[in-house]
Design a protein around this nucleic acid. Structure first.
Lengths: 254, 254
DNA sequence: AACCTCGTTTGACAATGTCATACGCGGTTA
DNA sequence: TAACCGCGTATGACATTGTCAAACGAGGTT
């Protein structure tokens, strides 16, 4: 795959930087971080500002992401087939299980949430469509890792961050866990990301047989588990709903 | 303001194009639309794909927006002060009025929705954070236009699209309406976007005195209006909540 | 089997972005 | 008050870089 366009790659790097840090960043700050002359960074920022991808704080002169990105992000969602097909089924799953539902897809070694349904009759939750969840500490992530072994190996090359004392941080243990996920066709997690939260998930498969996402429920371990293993009726709901979405995507009914 | 970087502007134009059309687009299609050689467009797309801003459909070879944009969009929201400060107040407004709440800001001559709270106990609505609403057919938009006269003139240069037979399409009438909005400090709309929907909105002001957004409720005209004018208690709630957000943003309490 | 159309590659050319240097401003220090 | 940072911004010469016409090759259609 031959040459990429340098200035666009740099612009993307700047946007990624701004997206990572939540606070506003200055020109020199970014220039140092990226190892570029500040003049260059400034020129790129000027252009990005003109197209609405970044905004400049009039007082401090520092930069942050721009509103155009929000609209593009939502346009992405509109065109995302996985999410579109899953809309009805995720509502159904939420009301059947009385739990919060999320649909995630693999992005950059993490789980990108493309849809999120609140737990019924439980408002005051914050929607986290667009956020990235850790891949080795969520059931969604385990499903995705189990079906993408090369990504799994890539992820395990880096240190696996620990979130609670239940988080799987040993690659050997994780590999074994993923093996189990592959065998059973579903994944679970209890308190591995937050002590009092857990999740169950199953794969969503498209017409080519590839796992393009995962669908799962989130809730307190006392509700999702019984005697250390997932409650069978919840598991069935999750698996059947994920299958339903897969069927909508054209997967061969299995 | 001197030179912008051509390739980045072109990349942005491509993304905007993809964001506008919901279906996938091909290289030649975009090249024609933008008046560029297809080789050039392809090179930009290759780079955008590499950074995750576009994805290519493996079967058709056509392009669509990429997942990275979704995450950046949500990062924008995290850093958006207007939205952050408004979170609690919009929940409060929704439960007080029992109506759907939206917060919007000016973007590109339209209203960009940065926050959206469903009508309490009424699920199955689709969240439209990130979507763009027409500016002259919503109360949110009227508030923003009334406080940004130059934008109003810009918008009125183009034909004002009609959505129902109540939509204000005559610039003269719209100017008079905006005058009223300025005087009263709030805006209303009944059936101007959809026949059986209406909205009330008030401005959100920051520490510099600029109107940085608008907050409003949406609901059936029979609930929001009585005898052709907005129900006073709803109006009061909207105005007071918008003021509360303004105060959080550091506006001088008035 | 000839012929589209589309996505992709190529390579020479010069337009274009790069980057060191300089500028001007605000804040801080001596 | 004046010297001095540090910042965001402007400038301009240079050669790196992106551009674009033309050609390629794979699908599909005629």
């Amino acid at each position: 795959m031959p040459g990429r366009i340098q200035s666009i790659e740099r612009a993307a790097a700047i946007l990624r930087l701004l997206s990572g840090r939540s606070r506003r960043l200055g020109v020199v700050e970014m220039a140092n971080e990226l190892g570029l002359p500040k003049g260059t960074v400034h020129g790129i920022l000027r252009t990005l500002q003109h197209v609405g991808f970044v905004e400049q704080d009039p007082e401090s002169g520092k930069y942050r992401l721009g509103a155009a990105l929000l609209h593009m992000g939502s346009s992405y969602l509109d065109g995302n087939e996985l999410r579109t097909r899953a809309l009805n089924w995720s509502d159904s799953l939420a009301s059947r299980t009385h739990e919060e539902v999320r649909i995630g897809t693999l992005h950059d070694g993490r789980v990108l949430i493309v849809h999120h349904v609140f737990r019924p009759d439980d408002s005051m939750q914050t929607l986290d469509v667009g956020s990235l969840m850790p891949i080795h500490a969520t059931a969604l992530g385990k499903v995705l890792l189990a079906t993408h072994p090369h990504v799994a190996e890539e992820v395990m090359k880096r240190e696996l961050p620990s979130y609670t004392d239940s988080t799987i941080t040993d690659p050997k243990l994780l590999r074994r866990e993923l093996e189990r996920v592959r065998e059973r066709g579903w994944a679970s997690e209890a308190g591995e990301l937050q002590r009092l939260r857990s999740s169950l998930a199953a794969p969503i498969i498209d017409r080519t047989g590839r796992t393009v996402g995962a669908m799962g429920i989130f809730g307190g371990p006392e509700r999702l588990f019984a005697a250390r293993s997932p409650r069978p009726e919840l598991l069935t709901h999750v698996r059947e709903h994920a299958q339903a979405v897969s069927r909508e995507l054209g997967a061969i009914p299995w």
